[in-house]
Amino acid sequence: MRKFTYLVPKTLDEAISLYQSYGERAKYIAGGTDVLVKIKEGKLAPDYLISLKHIISQDRPFLNHETGELYVGAFVTHRMIETSPLVQAHYPILYDAVKNIGSVQIRNVATIGGNLVNAVPSADGAIPLITLDGKANIYGAKGQRSVDLLRFFLGPGQCDLERGEILTEVVVPRLLPRTGSAYIKHGRREAMELPMLGVGVLLSLEADMETCAKAGISLGVAAPTPIRALQAEKHLVGKTINEETLAEAGKIAGEESKVRDSIRGVAWYRREMVAVLVTRMGMKALERASRNAEVGMGNK
C-alpha cells in the first residue's frame, strides 16, 4: 500500500488541529474498511491519515432518559449497534440495517459514521437513521453544529462536511408512542451484498392502533443520495394502515424515486421493488408497533 503517516489524536480538537496542519494531504479514518480500500485502489492518496478511533467517546448507542433521544456515536462500530439490546428492542429498523452490512469481520471494525460520511446512495446505515429523523452532530474548527441527517447527503460521495469537520454523532429524537419500524436490503445474495435497493419504513399509530399518526419512508439506491419519500409518507398520515394503503404509498414512493440502471440492477425493477418493499416493510412496521404496544414497549 502507498505510504502515509498514521496519526492518532485522543480528542476531537486535536484531530481538527492535525487536519488544519496538513489540509488536503490528510484524510480522516475511523474503521478504515472503506478508506483503506480506496487507498489500495488509488482513489485516495493521503499523506496523513488521522484516526478517529482513539477519540474518547461513547462506544455504544445510548438513550438520554430525560429527552428520550437516542445517541449513536459516529465511531461506534456496526457490531456494537447490532448487539445493542436498546437498538434491538426499540429501533429494529436500525438493527435490520446494520446486521446485514458486510460480514461480521467488517462490522467489527467499520463505524456508522464512516458509513454515513461515505455518502453513497447505498449506505445501509443511513436509511434507518434518516427514517428516524436523525440529526447529525458535526464538530469543526468553528465549533459544533447540527444538521438534519437527510440534508447531510448532498450527492454521491458528497456530504455536508466543511474541510476538517468531523461527524461526531447522530441523535434520534424521541419516538412517538405506538411506533414500529423495519428495513430491508434487497439484493441477490443473503450476505455480503451492497443493496440493489434499501427500503426503511417507520409508522407511529394513533391510540386506535390502526390510524397513521406519522410515517417515515426512506429509500437507498433510489436516487443519488438516500432519500425520504415525502409524498408517500403524506399519503399515509391520517389513514388506516393496511396492505392497500401501504401499496398506494409504495406506488407513490416508486414515483418519487429517481432510480437508474446500474450493474447492480435495472431502473424499472428498482422502481417496482420500491412499491413492493414499502408495502412489506410497512406491514412489518405495523406488526412491530402492535407487538410493542401489547408488551408495553412503546417508547416513552
Binding site: G32, T33, L36, I106, N108, V109
Partner: peptide, 11 residues
C-alpha cells in the same frame, strides 16, 4: 473479534 487483516492497519 474476527477482523479482516487486509483492511486493518498494523499500527
Amino acid at each position: 473479534n474476527a477482523v479482516n487483516s487486509c483492511l486493518y492497519l498494523a499500527a
